[in-house]
Simulated scan of single mutants.
Amino acid sequence: MTRRIRKSLGNWRIRRPPPKELYWVKGAGHLDLYDRVTLIPFDKLTAFFNKNLNQAESY
């Protein structure tokens, strides 16, 4: 991991308002997640949105 990536991850952790979750998709770059749908973790996304959208409705 390069110093630039470590710094970006550190900044993300400091500035993130909840709820957020960092999920690293091994073997994928940013653009891969548009074109290579087999890499997209739909189960992870669905679980995250179901959990956090349900919490938002309770406010």
Rank of each mutant, 00 (worst) to 15 (best):
L53G: 05
N52F: 08
T46K: 11
L33Y: 07
R13G: 12
S58C: 09
W12G: 02
P41I: 11
E21M: 01
K51P: 01
N52R: 14
N54E: 15
V37S: 11
T46P: 02
P41E: 13
H30L: 03
H30G: 03
L22A: 07
L22E: 09
T46C: 09
G27R: 04
G27M: 05
H30E: 05
W12S: 08
I14W: 10
L53P: 01
L45S: 04
V25H: 03
I14V: 14
N52T: 05
Y23W: 08
Q55V: 08
K51Y: 06
A47G: 05
L22C: 05
A56R: 12
V37R: 15
A47S: 15
P41R: 09
L39G: 05
G10H: 11
Y23V: 12
F48W: 01
K51H: 05
H30T: 07
R16G: 13
R36Q: 12
P18S: 06
F48I: 00
L31V: 10
L31H: 15
N11V: 04
F48R: 00
L22H: 06
K26F: 12
L31E: 15
K51N: 11
R36K: 15
V37W: 08
E57S: 13
D35Q: 15
L33H: 06
A47Y: 06
G10K: 04
R16K: 14
N52Q: 14
L33Q: 07
G29N: 11
K20C: 14
T38Q: 14
R36I: 03
K51M: 02
I40D: 05
P18V: 07
Y34P: 10
F42Y: 14
T38M: 03
S58Q: 15
L22P: 01
V25M: 05
T38K: 13
G27I: 09
W12T: 10
P17L: 07
I14H: 10
R36N: 15
I40A: 03
A28V: 00
